[in-house]
Amino acid sequence: MKCGEVRQRGPESGPWNSQWREDVNTASGRLLHERVDLPGHDARAGRRVERAVLLGSHRLRISGRADMVEYQRDAAVDSGWRPFPVEVKRGRHKALEADRVQLCAQALCLEEMHGVAVPEGALFYGTQHRREQVCFDARLRQRTEDAVARMHALLRLQEVPAVARAPRCDGCSLEPLCLPQVTAGQRSARDYLARWMDEEG
Results as ranks from 00 to 15, higher is better:
Gln106His: 12
Glu199Met: 14
Asp146Phe: 09
Pro11Ile: 09
Phe84Asp: 02
Arg190Ile: 12
Ser13Gln: 05
Arg168Cys: 07
Glu120Asn: 12
Val69Leu: 04
Gly171Val: 04
Arg150Lys: 11
Glu34Gln: 11
Ser79Gln: 11
Gly29Glu: 03
Ala43Gly: 09
Gln181Phe: 04
Leu32His: 00
Asp198Lys: 10
Leu179Cys: 11
Asp191Gln: 10
Trp196Gln: 14
Gly201Asn: 13
Val36Cys: 01
Ala76Gly: 08
Arg168Gln: 09
Asp37Leu: 03
Leu110Thr: 06
Asp23Asn: 14
Gly46Phe: 07
Leu108Lys: 07
Pro15Gln: 07
Gln128Tyr: 05
Gly56His: 13
Ala138His: 12
His58Leu: 09
Gln19Ala: 15
Gly29Arg: 00
Gly14Cys: 08
Arg90Ala: 01
Ser57Cys: 10
Cys172Leu: 13
Ala166Asn: 14
Arg61Gly: 15
Arg21Ile: 15
Asp146Arg: 12
Val6Asp: 02
Asp99Arg: 00
Cys135Ile: 10
Gly4Asn: 07
Pro15Leu: 08
Arg131Cys: 02
Ala45Tyr: 07
Leu140Trp: 07
Arg90Ser: 01
Ala27Phe: 03
Met68Ile: 03
Asp23Ser: 03
Gln181Ser: 13
Trp81Cys: 01
Gly201Ala: 11
Glu50Thr: 01
Glu120Trp: 10
Asp198Ala: 11
Arg139Ser: 08
Val160Glu: 13
Val24Leu: 10
